[in-house]
């Protein structure tokens, strides 16, 4: 009998659904879990209908029928409710074991020695049909999450995001020209001379540290440190509440970098001295 037409144990269904929803599981997933629990419960309660798992041999089914009624029948009402929640787990654990222990050993037929002859004129070719041991197969267990089709949902979102950025960039570029100063002249140093904006944080650091520290040690440390983040932070949780230290540290460093970059960009003027942009103006070019 296919799984779909197995009757459901309504009580188990309702209870499991409620428990899953209380856990915050998505409704579709919760319903799936409730249904499968209900089917299992029904099979346990009605072993005579032959619902035992297809792989399990007869002894496993026998075991099920001896366990479940023993637990359920003599007990009073509250115990019965508990037993029906325990029984499926017990069956799930017991059935494969029983199948392994008691399934009759089936031997492969002995080789006949009749190697088929190749057709006349057939090209010299060999084909190998290999036996793949179960442990040789990579088993991927896809968690049954709440998924949506990439088309149209994700692709439309991406197209819209792309379109907005493209239009914004074209409008910006149509009205604001990228700078092009006079021809390069190695003998005429502009004042101030600044690096591109993403290096201005480092240039700002040069004011406070020896160039070797600011220009070599700190950038290397940042890059290596960034790459090492997943190997240092071994906390498995992704919930912000569990990651207060990591989030605080990263935010401080990120803000530190942003502050230095902004200071180097807007608060440094001729001679790379401190200026207030609202008083002396902005010495910054992109």
């Amino acid at each position: 009998m296919a799984r779909d037409d197995t009757p459901l144990d309504q009580e188990t269904f309702d209870r499991t659904l409620e428990a899953e929803l209380a856990k915050g599981t998505d409704r579709r997933v919760a319903e799936g879990r409730a249904r499968s629990a209900a089917v299992r419960a029904y099979r346990v309660a009605h072993p005579e209908e032959g619902h035992a798992a297809p792989g399990a041999a007869a002894p496993a089914a026998a075991m099920v029928s001896s366990v479940a009624p023993a637990a359920a029948a003599p007990a009073a009402a509250p115990a019965a409710a508990m037993a029906s929640s325990v029984a499926p787990a017990a069956v799930a654990a017991a059935a494969p074991l029983a199948a392994i222990a008691t399934a009759p050993v089936r031997e492969a037929p002995a080789p006949t020695g009749n190697v088929p002859e190749a057709k006349k004129g057939a090209p010299e070719k060999h084909r190998l049909l290999a036996l793949v041991p179960p442990e040789g197969i990579q088993r991927v267990e896809r968690e049954q999450g709440d998924r949506v089709n990439v088309w149209p949902h994700l692709l439309l979102e991406e197209f819209i995001a792309m379109f907005i950025v493209l239009v914004g960039l074209v409008i910006f570029s149509a009205f604001i020209n990228a700078p092009l100063r006079e021809l390069a002249n190695p003998n005429l140093t502009p004042n101030p001379s600044k690096a591109p904006w993403y290096f201005l944080g480092l240039q700002e650091l040069l004011r406070y540290f020896h160039p070797m520290i600011a220009g070599i040690t700190i950038p290397t440390f940042i890059l290596v440190g960034l790459a090492a983040v997943p190997y240092v932070d071994r906390n498995p949780s992704v919930r912000p509440g569990d990651r207060k230290i990591a989030i605080t540290l990263f935010t401080i460093l990120f803000m530190f970098g942003a502050t230095l970059t902004i200071a180097g960009s807007f608060f440094r003027g001729p001679g790379y001295n401190w200026v207030w942009p609202w008083a002396q103006g902005v010495f910054f070019e992109l």
Binding site: R181, A184, K194
Partner: peptide, 8 residues
């Protein structure tokens, strides 16, 4: 290859 480029 303007002043901005080579000095940056």
């Amino acid at each position: 290859w303007d002043q901005l480029a080579i000095w940056a």
